[in-house]
Simulated scan of single mutants.
Amino acid sequence: MKNKVEKLDKGNPVALIPLFVFLVLYLGMGIYFSMQGVEMAFYQFPAPIAALVGIIVAFFMASGSMEERVSSLY
């Protein structure tokens, strides 16, 4: 039991890559549109699209075959 707890205590910073992809994409597009002079620049690029890109990155980061990844969703 103690071994399982010890394994949970150690995090992997690679797991934060999808979050950083979302932040860089959303903030980057907002800043880009702002520099172009577009009104309400951060509303021009929808946050759900940036989140979807982050989810896709996370999906491709998962280990195992494609069948195992898809079957784990159900």
Rank of each mutant, 00 (worst) to 15 (best):
P46A: 04
N12W: 00
F20Q: 04
L73E: 04
D9L: 15
E6Y: 10
D9K: 15
A51K: 00
G11M: 12
K4W: 14
V70H: 03
K4A: 14
D9G: 14
Y74K: 14
Y43T: 14
Y74S: 06
V5R: 14
L19P: 07
E67L: 15
M40Y: 09
I49N: 08
V38Y: 02
A50F: 00
E67M: 14
M29F: 09
K7C: 10
N3P: 11
N12C: 08
K7S: 12
I55D: 03
S34G: 10
K10T: 09
S71L: 02
M29K: 00
L16A: 14
I31P: 05
M35Y: 15
E39A: 08
V24G: 04
L8N: 13
I31A: 10
L16K: 12
G54C: 05
M61V: 11
L27I: 06
M29Y: 04
R69Q: 00
I17D: 04
V21P: 05
E67Y: 10
L27K: 04
M1P: 07
M40I: 14
Q36T: 05
F60E: 01
K7M: 12
L73N: 03
V21S: 10
S63R: 10
A15D: 09
S34R: 06
M35A: 15
F59V: 07
L52Q: 04
K10F: 12
V57I: 02
K2A: 14
L16H: 08
P48L: 07
F33N: 04
I49S: 11
A50K: 03
V70K: 00
N3I: 11
G28H: 03
F42T: 12
E68W: 02
F60L: 10
L25F: 04
L25T: 07
E68P: 10
M29S: 11
D9Q: 15
E68N: 11
P18A: 02
P13M: 07
N3W: 15
V70T: 01
M40W: 10
M40D: 14
G30F: 07
M40T: 12
F20C: 11
G64A: 07
S71T: 01
G64L: 05
L19C: 11
V53L: 08
K2R: 08
Y43L: 13
L16E: 08
K2M: 15
V5S: 11
L23T: 08
L73K: 06
K7A: 13
A58C: 08
G28A: 03
F42M: 08
I56R: 07
G28I: 02
L19Q: 09
F33H: 12
F45E: 06
M66P: 03
G11Y: 13
D9A: 15
N3L: 15
Y32M: 09
A15F: 08
V38A: 07
K7I: 08
I55E: 06
A41H: 02
I55R: 00
G54Q: 09
N3Y: 10
L25I: 06
F59Q: 06
S71Q: 05
L73M: 06
Q44W: 13
L73V: 01
